[in-house]
Design a protein around this nucleic acid. Structure first.
Lengths: 152, 152
DNA sequence: TATTGTTATACTCTATAACTATA
DNA sequence: TATAGTTATAGAGTATAACAATA
């Protein structure tokens, strides 16, 4: 506004839109998760990869990419970073694929990351006290399942 | 997995988490919005700025930044891009602030962008048929309102 | 032919620091 | 001192194209 006494009072024509609310809520959530994970030295994607790897021993990085919607090309530096930290190792599978597994410290970090993410999830659900959390979950799944991933 | 006959069948330990669902739903939504806006040559942020500007004549780019959670420094190229396209113009306000306004073609584009975003919103709500849309909206607002913006 | 892993590259978004000019 | 606008820069995230080796 041009009134210098009320510089923050814009009319907000997009606040009620579902898409905008969704984007903002996701952004806030990711910010909080990133802060919660700061103690581990991991970013949300890396923590997620460790957790997925812990649940799926000896899968390939392409498998993880497909599951998480990350392109093959972008998996390379992510996995390399986790190997650099000593959390993940590769072992040849069939000549073109390599099985990924967690090292001992990688298993510890996966457990730590899982704990942090679970705690964050719980803190997040507390903010939803009084709301239909299962309904929210179902609605978000309905929305997300319209996604089409090709490369992975 | 190591079984080559079922390369896509990873156990997914994060799918049920609210944070993950939120991020995925937001990502799918933004992807769809970006595709819907492609015909206008605008990205979601630019379209949003035009709509905000249409509802708030003569506000400053700092005002818009605060409303949308965009830092001052990042507003510069966004506004410059909209001026380059001939949709926005600046007029001096008080020597350090500049009032932004829509040009004639900017008003047309704002209307177009609003139409596309409203249609996208409607298509989006169709996917939620059978769900409590108002409940979803309220829950997302409750989540997003825990945000703290400083710079803007 | 299709897939795995890789390199190189580019664009968007976001973030900080520092500067000028003005209130 | 605080704010508006700007510049430069850096880090993430995401995208494509192309390649070698393998299935």
């Amino acid at each position: 506004m041009s009134d210098p006494t009320k510089p923050h009072s814009l009319t907000d024509p997009i606040a009620p839109r579902l898409g905008y609310l969704l984007r903002r809520a996701s952004s806030v959530m990711m910010g909080g998760l990133g802060a919660a994970l700061a103690q581990t030295g991991l970013r949300p994607v890396q923590a997620t990869i460790l957790i997925v790897l812990n649940a799926n021993p000896d899968c390939s990085q392409s498998d993880i990419g497909r599951l998480l919607g990350i392109k093959r090309a972008n998996m390379v530096p992510l996995i390399a970073g986790l190997i650099d930290k000593g959390y993940v190792r590769k072992s040849p599978m069939d000549g073109r694929s390599q099985a990924l597994s967690l090292t001992q410290s990688g298993q510890a970090m996966a457990a730590m990351a899982d704990g942090v993410m679970t705690a964050h999830e719980a803190r997040f659900e507390m903010l939803l006290d009084g709301f239909d959390k299962d309904g929210l979950r179902a609605a978000l799944m309905a929305l997300a399942e319209r996604a089409v991933d090709d490369d992975g």
